[in-house]
Design a protein around this nucleic acid. Structure first.
Lengths: 181, 181
DNA sequence: TAAAGCATGTAACATGTTACATGATTGC
DNA sequence: GCAATCATGTAACATGTTACATGCTTTA
């Protein structure tokens, strides 16, 4: 995963390993954390794979290495971005991918979001079913917190579904916040 | 983390490693995945630490090992459950802990939820601030999906906050679902 | 001039997954 | 009798974190 995020970051702008970390933190820090201990070794591997090239900065006062994505690296990233992963992708991973969807054509983006939405819907049904089984339980009060986590899952999935509905149609994002407060 | 979840599971009921996995999957599978490759080695370690004991099933037709939590194991689990982690706990980890809050006294449970809520509020402010910076950006349309992930974070945090508000006061959980649909 | 930030990198550790190996029991 | 499920366990692999080592540059 991180290798693609690195490629996606370099796709937008060449930069140093240090800057890559800052970009990731600023952009998708909410969903994904990357440390130097994972970035630097990966950059080395991407160099070996010729997905990126690297040059010492002309401004040689600093010992910085500027990384640039290659054509091969771009193709690799594009392929990942367009791939419709059937996997049981966690929402955080999916969001880290969505972050780069501005580089994807709208149709494919919508399709991937719809796919994710469908899986989320199926999962929500499961949870609602689980909730019903609990609903008439005599000992309900003894499981208040256990149940609360189930409700958390339900509310979270409902949130995901409304997000999908808005974003797959490229609806104005402010609708999210306006309806609140 | 998993060691505590195993202890918490055995606290409620003695069982085999196989059953522990099923329990985890059924209870907090939504937040936490555990494979045999992680459970069995951990059970061995918990045995060494005398947090659990183990006996071959009397019904010896099957080669099953029934694990039982010890007093020392219970104390260890209690301590973890009551500990007010200041850490930057991810919501999933927190929920896995909340799952066991029925074993904790109400005051401490509410206090931990309030603590989590506070940290979530601070984070939400950050995100709302970030959003404002984007709001009047001329190139906003070029970052639709990038922005959408920011909004996802905002909506998610708002969801977390309302969950906290309900659960820390032990309010009827159905309010979550009733207001919807 | 001291602290904060820029900048790279490694080694030890932690954690967990996947695939494999093995074999009994239960339900159809 | 066959498939599904119960049941345990290991070894190789994947992934990533933390702490450490090093030293320059910018800013208060």
């Amino acid at each position: 995963m991180l290798e693609y995020i690195i490629l996606g970051t370099l796709y937008q702008q060449e930069m140093t390993g240090y800057d890559i970390r800052k970009c990731i933190e600023a952009g998708i820090g909410m969903f994904y954390k990357a440390s130097y201990g994972s970035i630097y070794p990966l950059l080395k591997r991407l160099l070996d794979l010729e997905m990126v090239t690297c040059s010492q900065a002309a401004d040689s006062s600093r010992k910085q290495k500027i990384y640039v994505i290659t054509e091969s690296g771009k193709r690799c990233f594009d392929k990942w971005l367009a791939a419709d992963e059937n996997e049981d992708y966690k929402i955080e991973m999916f969001m880290a991918k969505v972050y780069f969807f501005d580089q994807l054509n709208e149709e494919q983006a919508s399709k991937q979001i719809s796919g994710f939405q469908k899986r989320a819907e199926a999962y929500l049904s499961e949870l609602l079913h689980k909730r019903e089984q609990f609903l008439y339980n005599e000992h309900k009060d003894d499981f208040y917190f256990k149940l609360s986590t189930l409700y958390f899952g339900i509310v979270k999935l409902q949130g995901i579904l409304s997000w999908c509905e808005v974003v797959k149609n490229r609806t104005e994002l402010e609708t999210f916040v306006e309806t609140k407060v």
